[in-house]
């Protein structure tokens, strides 16, 4: 079975975490998933070494050297050598309120063009975040990119559905399609303001939807106002 396969190469020389079974037994699966069969159990009082993690599953080695996969739920019932329960942070609503980093991907529309975007944010406080965003828009008339940085203020971060507003600045590069107009690429500065909602899903994941108004300051001292909306999937750490 899987258990017979050679163990993964050892990483850093630190000793693995040792956990003691307190429930009647700990089930070990042959693979990192609920459907993989249980071929070994570890009895109460015995211990396992935790080797590494994959999603919600931990590869462990028993005292007899047998390898298997234990679920995060089952391991949360074990204790460490000092008797304290083994706690795993898989993400909670309180983590949604207080965290350091977040990131995500979006799909949306920008001035009539289709928008694809990815963002990363760092929390200054539970309410205030610094965000950076990279987006590509693909339209019938022109394509281009947006790069921006700004601040986001989340009003009630502890709510499962929490509203926020954003304000920032950035650059846009517009590449008109050759078939329509004379292809002159433009690099312009922009500023944006907007707002939206964050919806906590589960674990470390949330949905984020927002609407922005982008003001593009062109080289001809005029400006364009472009609407932008986006909806995406994000996670926090």
């Amino acid at each position: 079975m899987c258990l017979a396969l050679a163990p993964a190469p050892a990483r850093a020389g630190r000793a693995p975490l040792q956990l003691f079974v307190t429930q009647p037994y700990l089930e070990l699966h042959t693979g990192p998933g609920r459907g993989f069969p249980v071929t070994q159990v570890v009895a109460r009082g015995e211990s396992v070494d935790v080797l590494f993690r994959r999603t919600d599953w931990f590869k462990v080695r028993t005292e007899r050297g047998i390898l298997g996969w234990a679920s995060v739920h089952d391991l949360s019932l074990t204790v460490m050598a000092d008797g304290t329960p083994f706690a795993v942070d898989t993400g909670t609503l309180s983590g949604f309120r207080t965290h350091r980093w977040e990131g995500g991907v979006f799909a949306g529309a920008y001035a009539g063009a289709t928008l694809i975007s990815a963002y990363a944010a760092m929390s200054l406080t539970d309410n205030l975040k610094v965000e950076a965003d990279l987006a590509q828009f693909l339209g019938n008339v022109s394509d281009g990119y947006l790069v921006d940085i700004g601040l986001a203020h989340v009003f009630v971060p502890q709510w499962r559905v929490s509203p926020f507003v954003t304000l920032g600045t950035g650059f846009t590069r517009t590449e008109p399609k050759a078939t329509f107009v004379q292809p002159i690429d433009r690099n312009d500065q922009l500023a944006y303001a907007g707002g939206g909602l964050r919806l906590y899903l589960t674990r470390r994941f949330f949905l984020r939807g927002e609407y922005r108004t982008d003001v593009v300051i062109t080289k001809t001292n005029s400006y364009e106002v472009n609407p932008e909306w986006r909806l995406g999937f994000a996670f926090f750490y």
Binding site: A8, R11, R14, A15, P16, L17, V50, F52, R53, R54, T55, F58, M80, A81, D82, T84
Partner: peptide
């Protein structure tokens, strides 16, 4: 003296 355990970082290979 109570034994204190420092939890080693468990690598996530995701």
């Amino acid at each position: 003296q109570r034994r204190s355990v420092t939890v080693p970082h468990i690598g996530a290979r995701d």
